[in-house]
Design a protein around this nucleic acid. Sequence first.
DNA 1: TATGAATAGTTTAAATTTGAAATACTCCAT
DNA 2: ATGGAGTATTTCAAATTTAAACTATTCATA
Lengths: 152, 152
Amino acid sequence: MRTTEQYGRKADLALTMWVKLARASTTFGRLTGKDIEQHGLTQPQFGVLEMLGHLGPLTIGDIGKRMLVTGGCVTVILDNLEKEGQVERIRSSEDRRVIKVQLTPKGESTFKTVFRKHADRVAELSSVLSEEEQIQLSTLLKKLGLALKEKQ
Amino acid sequence: MRTTEQYGRKADLALTMWVKLARASTTFGRLTGKDIEQHGLTQPQFGVLEMLGHLGPLTIGDIGKRMLVTGGCVTVILDNLEKEGQVERIRSSEDRRVIKVQLTPKGESTFKTVFRKHADRVAELSSVLSEEEQIQLSTLLKKLGLALKEKQ
DNA sequence: TATGAATAGTTTAAATTTGAAATACTCCAT
DNA sequence: ATGGAGTATTTCAAATTTAAACTATTCATA
């Protein structure tokens, strides 16, 4: 840890934290991403499968909000997943502007296989931290994340 | 926090942590990125300026390693910064394969202005956590980050 | 000194993401 | 019922990133 102040104690502390946050997140994402890509899925494609697998059918807008990407991006991701027969778009009959996206049986099966492995891999990568440390980290990140969400 | 086990306690714990890590990092990056872009810099451009400002001249390879991006990407970032007169490439005379990149006086001045504001902004965004919590978070993230680095 | 392996950086093509414009539809106030 | 505001999604162009192929240079060693 740096001992001389460069930008004031508060700023130095926060900058150090932010660097470590970005690095850990990027590296974690790269490592899990490599596994996912071995199943012929990109990371965002897997993100959509995971969401639909855990939450059931969602609208395109919901998917974008949860993944923190723009609608145009969701459209492309879904186009590719649809070409592979993993998901299907269903125009809502109540509100015809809305499209619900859901897993096909093939998508359901892909989700189960890939997510099971993903969960194990995430656990393995995290295992350098004890369970207690992981809980601590989660708690702190949640507090930070919620506060940041407000400021968006 | 989810109370029923889905993938085993360890995996659930790790998955929860990873989701929060990714979200906090993405959101933090978006918010600081918006500030940076108001100075006519992209996030990676700012990343290079910051590195050179704090560490002095670096080779292109070093920049890529530190930013966790490929060499091809660094080339593009530097091309754009060079067009703006913020950095210059200097071919090393000892080893003519190597290029050292350094800030121009203009780059020096941009770095000082923008980083000062950036530091304040990062401190502000982090202020939802107490100093002690920030230190805790840093420590945990460092432990995680270092372990992940090994596995790359 | 010659030659083959290794290293530093650039170029290229393809994929992803964004933001803005366009389209299609709904809802509300008149 | 109709016009206008607002919402959901897609399309498009531009920017960023990657991976692989390529050029130029150095190093090891025979």
